[in-house]
């Protein structure tokens, strides 16, 4: 059976299985919730190609993700599984699902903020302390994030400060809550 989008029921099922694999570094999330499994193409009755996109170009978890996907699909009767890395279109933190964001918060990681509509955004230059967020040199949409504070995943306070732009992994920044004083990771907007 072929659906309107050209995806067969089996492909949709296999996509679901590949997407249900947990992320190796954030096991609370599945790859589907992270938004990194792009598509599944059936090449023969028991041969399948999976399109996987990295969060960061150098994401070291990519190989483990590929192996986990292969294992899951082999277990589902696929003899041949090829996981192909695709860079286009570039992954964005906006690809993380709402469920994924909720799970990140429960896991103690402040989820990335979603980007407001792009457009002219006032630029403020000057302060040298690192209270700001997001790259100042980044694209205009990242400036739109300034109006939206990062909330503490523990107590929910919007009163938090940046400690370091890079944290335990490239995709996170280290922050501290000024209300409950707990440090926490923040999934950086990308």
């Amino acid at each position: 059976m072929v659906t309107a989008t050209g995806t067969t029921a089996l492909e949709a099922e296999l996509l679901g299985i590949a997407g249900s694999v947990p992320d190796p570094e954030l096991p609370a999330l599945t790859l589907r919730e992270l938004g990194v499994v792009r598509a599944v193409h059936l090449r023969a009755a028991d041969s399948v190609e999976v399109e996987l996109t990295p969060t960061y170009t150098g994401c070291p978890a990519l190989e483990t993700m590929s192996l986990d996907i292969e294992r899951a699909l082999h277990a589902h009767g696929m003899r041949e599984v090829e996981v192909r890395t695709v860079l286009v279109p570039a992954w964005s933190t906006d690809d993380i699902t709402d469920e994924g964001r909720r799970k990140l918060r429960e896991f103690g990681i402040a989820p990335p903020r979603t980007r407001a509509a792009a457009g002219p955004v006032p630029l403020s230059l000057g302060p040298t302390r690192i209270a700001d967020d997001g790259p100042e040199t980044g694209s205009a949409p990242s400036r739109a994030l300034d109006a939206d504070p990062v909330h503490c995943p523990h107590c929910g306070s919007p009163d938090t400060e940046l400690l370091s732009r890079f944290s335990s992994t490239a995709c996170k920044a280290l922050r501290r809550c000024l209300a409950c004083r707990e440090p926490f990771d923040h999934f950086k907007e990308l």
Partner: peptide, 14 residues
Amino acid sequence: LAAKAVKEVAYHRD
């Protein structure tokens, strides 16, 4: 690649 990397490099530059 550039479309992907430019977002990472923005953080390096910052």
